[in-house]
């Protein structure tokens, strides 16, 4: 039975968008505290590699998932040590973290290349499977991370905009000096944001290796970390808009593959560029209002009150 194009694209958008969404949410949290982590790609890779390795060794994907989350948190904590405590340049440190992630993930994953793992289990409620077209597609046949993606986005939004802690994080991101003067400790808040953001990035990597592809390969993220950084800007540092961004980019990727499978007469090279062209167009269209949305202290190092 053939799946209609729209359903195929939607199903692909959700599968491919899940890891993008977790990565975007993690980076949003981090950037809201005034820190840019260009090393996100490396954190995703470490999450994917450690998650896969631990799953291959223990045979339990849940332990792998936990290890990936922990790895992401630790990686971001290391980044925090560099840029918050040691006051290193964020952009340079981020790029260094990315290359560090490439190397470490390759080292950790090398002995388990080609291992066969049992991935995260998937559930599809019976009443959803009974809908027309659904049973023959991947629609609603999701693992826990995909089912929780939307609730987690809501949670991050709620924490950032409706809690005292979130207010503190945003205050630090806008003006660490003012936040400091009002009795908050910018370093502590930034470390906390980095830690939670890292956990989300680790989960994003784990979704790639433990659910979507069931494999580990060097540099398997193929630029998704950078797309997520672009999606943070696209969503104007708002976790709920990030859901739309992740679906849109995931959908563009799914659309080019679905069109090819339907025998489209468009060049595969042009189709391959579509998601990135889309990213460029969106950034271009929203460029003018970007200054209003970005945390004012983003990328700046806070040297204390002296």
């Amino acid at each position: 039975m053939m799946t209609p194009l729209a359903l195929g694209v939607l199903a692909g958008a959700v599968l491919s968008g899940t890891s993008l969404l977790y990565a975007t949410l993690g980076e949003t949290l981090v950037e809201r505290s005034g820190i840019v982590n260009l090393g996100l790609e490396g954190v995703l890779l470490m999450g994917a590699s450690v998650g896969f390795t631990v799953t291959a060794v223990t045979g339990n994907p849940w332990i792998g998932l936990a290890a990936a989350a922990l790895t992401g948190g630790l990686a971001n904590a290391l980044f925090g040590w560099l840029v918050v405590l040691r006051k290193a340049n964020q952009l340079a440190s981020g790029l260094a973290m990315m290359f560090f992630g490439f190397g470490l993930s390759a080292l950790v994953g090398a002995p388990h290349v080609g291992a066969v793992i049992v991935g995260l289990p998937k559930w599809r409620p019976a009443w959803l499977a009974a809908l027309p077209w659904v049973s023959a597609s991947t629609l609603f046949n999701y693992d826990l991370l995909t089912w929780l993606a939307l609730p987690v986005a809501l949670l991050v939004w709620w924490v950032l905009f409706k809690t005292r802690w979130g207010l503190g994080v945003r205050a630090v991101g806008e003006s660490p000096g003012a936040a400091y003067a009002s009795g908050r400790n910018p370093a502590v808040l930034q470390f906390q944001a980095l830690g939670f953001g890292g956990v989300l990035a680790g989960l994003a990597g784990a979704h790639l290796s433990l659910s979507l592809t069931l494999t580990w390969a060097e540099y398997m993220t193929a630029g998704r970390g950078f797309i997520a950084i672009a999606l943070v800007i696209f969503s104007k540092w708002n976790p709920l808009r990030a859901v739309a961004g992740a679906l849109l980019f995931g959908g563009a990727e799914a659309l080019q593959l679905q069109l090819q499978a339907r025998g489209s007469l468009i060049s595969p090279f042009i189709l391959d560029m579509m998601p990135y062209v889309l990213t460029l167009l969106v950034l271009l269209a929203w460029g003018g209002s970007r200054r209003l949305a970005a945390p004012a202290g983003l990328g700046r190092t806070f040297f204390g009150s002296e």
């Binding site: 359903l7 199903a11 692909g12 597609s137 193929a222 593959l257 499978a261």
Partner: peptide, 26 residues
């Protein structure tokens, strides 16, 4: 039916490509 992913090891796209082919009844 041929689907090109654009890389030798872009695993997520390989999963998407396989799903797209299955969606088309291959």
């Amino acid at each position: 039916v041929v689907v090109v992913t654009g890389g030798w090891a872009d695993k997520a796209k390989e999963a998407g490509a396989a799903n797209a082919l299955m969606d088309q009844g291959c």
